[in-house]
Design a protein around this nucleic acid. Structure first.
Length: 104
DNA sequence: CGATTGACGCAGA
DNA sequence: ATCTGCGCCAATC
């Protein structure tokens, strides 16, 4: 079985500390270049079921798109603890922290 | 098996 | 710069 979820999970778990990836990137590496929403729904639903470092996943804008204030706060806190500089607005420098796997 | 969901992404106004 | 709308697409209910 190689559902989109399993790949997404594997990829997310492969993100090193202090780095982040966008939903779109995770989805793309999982096999669905347009499946960002699937990753979103995945984390939304399975965040507490899987052992995922979901806090290392942000949107394409480098921002925390989470609506839950607690989860949102938790994510920026985790990122800061790992060395990621999160702005007060929850903005992250993708130019510096966007994890780029060795595709080549 | 059918409909809903959904932490996105991007184009257009 | 901000807001609105539409398309994706697989997991979940």
């Amino acid at each position: 079985m190689q559902p989109f979820t399993e790949k997404a999970i594997s990829i997310i778990k492969g993100i090193p500390p202090g780095m982040v990836m966008t939903y779109g990137q995770v989805a793309a590496y999982a096999g669905s270049p347009r499946g960002g929403r699937q990753v979103a729904r995945l984390l939304h639903s399975m965040s507490g079921k899987y052992d995922l470092p979901w806090h290392r996943v942000v949107n394409a804008q480098g921002q925390i798109m989470i609506q839950d204030p607690e989860a949102r706060f938790a994510q920026q806190t985790f990122l800061q603890q790992e060395g990621v500089e999160v702005s007060v607005n929850g903005k992250i420098d993708l130019s510096r922290f966007n994890f780029h796997p060795e595709s080549e």
